[in-house]
Design a protein around this nucleic acid. Structure first.
Lengths: 220, 220
DNA sequence: CCGGAGCAGATTGGATACAATATCCGAGCG
DNA sequence: CGCTCGGATATTGTATCCAATCTGCTCCGG
C-alpha cells in the first residue's frame, strides 16, 4: 500500500502467468491433485510454454505444485495430516511474529486491519471468494509484516500459500465466514490493547476452528 | 540412504544444472552479491540457457538467488541482521523438530549420525569443504528428518540453504572445524540418552557459536 | 566543466521447432 | 488366461532464434 510510486514496468509474461496460476489455485480453478497440462494452460494464458514453465518452477520451489520429471506438474495435494502439520508450524512461527510485531503496532496498522475487516464483510456478502481471501490475508499480514522479521513473514506466507487451495473450500460456507468475522474482531480488540497473550490466544482459537472444519471436509 | 533401489532415471539437464548451481553456491564458486551471467554459466555447464533459467527459478523460489526482471539474477546476500533472523527462526523450528524426533530415534539413527561424524573428520583433514558441509547436513538432518514432520524438515532445510554461502566461510578455519567436531559429539551424547532438554541446549550453544563467528566475519 | 538525450552493445525474455521420455494399448508368447 | 514386449501417441524437455529491455558511452547543449 505504500510503494505505489515505483517506476511502473509492464509486467513480463512470466509474472502475468504466475499471478494467473496463483489466482487459479486460490479460486479453485485448479484443483488439488489435478495434473497441469502445459500446452492447454499456455494457450489459455496466451503465451508460449516457456514462461508458464518458469512460473511453475517458482510454485514448485514454494511447494504449491509437485513435479515429476517427464510426467508433469500436479497441484499439490494436502492430506489431513499435512494440514495439521502446516497449522502446527504456523502456530510456532506466528506466535513469534505476533510477539515481535506488537511493539511496532501503531494507528496506521490498526486502521489497515479495520479496513481489511470492512473489505471482508463486503466480499462476504457478495460471495467473492477471491476478494475475501485477499482481505483475510491483508488482515493477518498487516500484523506479521510488522514483526521486523521479513524472512519470518515470508515463511508464514509460504505456509499460507500451501493451504490456499483449501481456504476457498472453507470460505464457501456462510457460517464460517460469519465466524471468521467475529473472531477477527476479537483478535483486533486484543491488538488494540497491545495484549500479546490475549492476541495469541485468540489466534489459536481462530486457527483451531479453521483446521478442524477443513479436516472434517477432507476426511469426508 | 534407504531408497537406493528406485528406478534410476538419467538426470535431466535441468536437475544437473540445479545441482551444479547449489554446489557452486555452497563451495563459494559463486559469491554472495555476484551477478549470474546466463550465457557464461550455460556454456560452462554444457547446456542451453533454458534449463539454467528454470533451475534459477527454483533457487529464486527458495530465496537463494534474487531476481530483477530484465536485469538478471544475483546470488542472495545476507546482512548481519539477516543472519541473526535466520538463526532465530531456526531455533524455533529446530527445537520443535528435535522434540518431535526424539521418540523415533533408534539405533539406525544413531549409527547414521556416527557415520556422519566420521565423514566430517575425514573431510576436515582433507580440507574438502564440500564434503564437510554435506556430512554436517547429514548429521543434523538425520535428526530432523525423524520428526515425522516432513514440511518442518523442509522449512529448516530452506533456512540452511539460505546460509550455505556463508557456511563455507565458517568451515575454512580449522579452529571452527575442531570446535564443531567436539560440539557434535556433545549433541550426540545427549541424543543417545534421549535427553531432549540437553540436546536442545547443546544445539543452542552450537548455533550460537556459529552465528557469532560468521557475524564477526560479516561485520569486518 | 557538467548534465541529459540518444545511440550502440550486451543481456535477458519469449516463441518456435525439434528431441527425449512416459503412457497406453494390442499382439504374441508361455 | 495372464504376462511381457513392442510400437504409436501424447506430453514434457531442450536448443536455437529473434524481440524487448537495460547499461554505458558519446555527443551535444548549456
Amino acid at each position: 500500500m505504500t510503494d505505489d510510486v515505483r517506476p511502473t514496468r509492464p509486467p513480463t509474461a512470466q509474472e502475468f502467468v504466475l499471478a494467473q496460476l496463483r489466482q487459479a489455485i486460490v479460486s479453485g480453478g485448479l484443483r488439488p491433485g489435478e495434473q497441469i497440462r502445459q500446452d492447454a494452460l499456455a494457450e489459455r494464458f496466451g503465451t508460449s510454454r516457456v514462461p508458464l514453465r518458469e512460473a511453475l518452477k517458482i510454485l514448485e520451489g514454494e511447494g504449491q505444485v509437485s513435479y515429476q520429471p517427464h510426467r508433469g506438474y500436479f497441484v499439490a495435494e494436502l492430506s489431513s495430516d499435512d494440514l495439521v502439520e502446516v497449522y502446527r508450524i504456523r502456530r510456532l512461527l506466528e506466535d513469534e511474529a505476533v510477539a515481535a510485531a506488537m511493539p511496532h503496532i501503531d494507528d496506521v496498522a490498526i486502521t489497515e486491519m479495520e479496513a481489511s475487516l470492512v473489505a471482508m464483510d463486503a466480499a462476504s456478502t457478495l460471495g467473492d471468494i477471491t476478494a475475501l481471501t485477499a482481505a483475510n490475508r491483508a488482515f493477518h499480514f498487516a500484523l506479521f509484516e510488522r514483526s521486523g522479521m521479513p524472512r519470518l513473514a515470508r515463511l508464514i506466507r509460504q505456509l499460507w500459500d500451501a493451504t490456499d487451495a483449501y481456504r476457498a473450500v472453507y470460505f464457501v460456507e456462510a457460517d464460517n465466514r460469519e465466524r471468521v468475522a467475529t473472531e477477527h474482531r476479537t483478535i483486533l480488540g486484543a491488538i488494540r490493547e497491545r495484549d500479546v497473550p490475549r492476541t495469541i490466544a485468540a489466534l489459536h482459537a481462530h486457527r483451531d476452528h479453521a483446521v478442524h472444519r477443513v479436516r472434517t471436509i477432507l476426511d469426508s
